[in-house]
Every structure is written in C-alpha cells, then in structure tokens.
Design a protein around this nucleic acid. Structure first.
Lengths: 150, 150
DNA sequence: ATATCATGGTTATATTATAACCTTAGAGGG
DNA sequence: CCCTCTAAGGTTATAATATAACCATGATAT
C-alpha cells in the first residue's frame, strides 16, 4: 500500500476533523471510517461487521451500528436508505444536504452537494414543518452501465 | 360506517383506476389498499399483515409484500424508506414524483406533488445518469407537534 | 486516586424482507 | 363448455437488517 492513498488521506482528514471537534476518535471508529473510504460502493452494516470481524477488530453487530450512527451524526458518513447501506461522505465533514445518484447496475454512488429543492423548503415553511433531515436518493443507471450493459 | 367515507372513496377511485388499466384487482389487493387509505399514518408491512391476519384475510408476510410491491408499481402507494413503511398515495394514480414531510413526533406524513429539484435532474443529465426512481423524504416536526409538544 | 461517563463487549432477540416451491382460480382459445 | 395457460396467492423456511438490555473497560477531570 503506497503512502499516497486517496482514501487514507480522506480518512486522515476526517479524523482530524473529529479531533478538532474534541470528539473522541477511537480505533474502532477509525477502522470503520477507513473501510468506508476504501470501499468502491456503499457497504451494509454486516459487510462492515464481517470485514472487521475477520480482522479481529469488531465483536458484534451493535458495535458497528453504534459507530455508524456516530459517523452519520458527525457528518462523516451517510446512510443510503434505498440500499440499507453506508458510504463515507466525500464532500467535507460539515453538515450538508447531500443527494445521491445510485446506479442499480454497478452499485456506484455519486454524492452531489446540491441544496434541497426550493419547492420543498417552501412547502415546509408554509405548513410550519421544521425539517431536521432530508433524504434525497435517485436510483437509476449510470452512463457507463448504460453504454456497456453487462 | 357511513356511506361517505373519504378513505373508502379514495379506495374506490384507485380501484377504478386499476380496472381501467385492465389490471386485476383482487380481494387481497383491495383490502391492503383500503387499510392504507384508512390509516392515519404509514403502516409497516407487518402492521398490515397482523391486521389482515386477524381478519382472516392474509396468510403470511410474502402475500402482503407482493401486494405492496404491486401497489407501489401501480402508483397507488408509496414506500417511505425512512420509516420502512407504506402509505396510500393521496395524489392520484398517475406516476409522479412525490415528496414526503414526515413528522417524527406524531408520525403523520404530508405528501407533496413537487417536481424533482432541477439541480438533481441537471446533474443526472450532465453525467449521463438515467434516473428511474427518486426518493425524497424530509424528517422533522410538524407545526402542531412544535406548538403542542407531548 | 477515584468518581464519572463515554465507549465498546456480549447475548439475545426484534423487525423487515425474500427465496423457493406448490396450489388455486381467472381469462381466453378452441 | 372445457381445457390450458398464467397470474395470483398460499406455505414454509430463512435471510438480512437493526436494536434492547445489561455489563466491562478505560479515558477524563477534579
């Protein structure tokens, strides 16, 4: 493994963010985050669990779920509800509205930093609904899978 | 039960749509749809199953899941991924982009008929991603729960 | 040093969803 | 009207996802 691994750099940078926030960065948390950063696709909680387990790094599912909740809370990972899976945030560790384009065919996910639709925030505002969390996910087929179907 | 039940009317209207489409409307499908229309909140597959089971109308979970898939396909119901639950579509049986405001506190859901954010469709177009299905859900707190917290 | 609290371990189980295979019943052709 | 074909549903078992509840450990702060 070369020194210049983009995924590791991302992990390091996220790690630094946590430290700066005064939040505790444990080995397990870092391991999970690292796995997510190295994955080409979102990983299910049990994918993560199995990997960490094999490496002698995780004990049981609850540990993994706790870490995932933590990472999502900290804005370092996202839960993709359409997949029941998790992905490292690739847009910086600030809270943001992320939108996902998920390819049904190859499973890759494209995270976009676009604002919530105005019509949505307008509706919320006019009905007095306080938005706390937005999920926006588009399932479909990415260009390369369209052009070179399996 | 009075003759003028809004939920029943909705069910009838949806029912008619199916018939017009030449799609088969079975007793089970109608029962599930009716349950969804009468529910104040989205129902989980097992909520539906338990209710139908008690009424001697359903056999086992797969039957319910099959009906739910069917109803979603036909645009008569929606799956709310944030809740792992299902709600009758209250906007007409045409395929449409629905957006949901889900109150964490009282569980009620507000279905809005707003278009997908332009920024999303633009991004998809520019990257060659073919969108097949969009999930947009906002979790939060509705006005009445904000004003009269439990 | 020790009390406190966040973290993780552990066991068990809840909840959501589907695979695989068989039976029934409705639609349509003869 | 009967037969065939197929869509729908029944049935059993199990997979996949997630959490409850309680205990052990180890960092932190005074």
């Amino acid at each position: 493994m070369p020194t210049h691994c983009k995924a590791c750099e991302n992990t390091d940078s996220a790690t630094k963010t946590l430290t700066d926030r005064g939040v505790r960065l444990t080995v397990l948390r870092r391991d999970v985050l690292q796995e997510l950063h190295h994955a080409k696709q979102p990983l299910g909680a049990y994918d993560l669990f199995d990997n960490l387990k094999s490496a002698g790094k995780a004990s049981a599912p609850p540990a993994v779920y706790r870490v995932l909740d933590f990472l999502v809370e900290q804005g370092l990972a996202h839960k993709l509800r359409s997949l029941s899976a998790y992905a490292a945030c690739c847009l910086g560790p600030h809270a943001h509205q992320a939108i996902f384009l998920i390819c049904r065919s190859c499973g890759t996910v494209n995270e976009c930093d676009i604002a919530a639709p105005k019509s949505l925030t307008d509706t919320a505002k006019s009905t007095g609904f306080r938005i706390e969390d937005i999920t926006i996910e588009a399932m479909g087929t990415c260009r390369s899978c369209t052009e070179a179907p399996n």
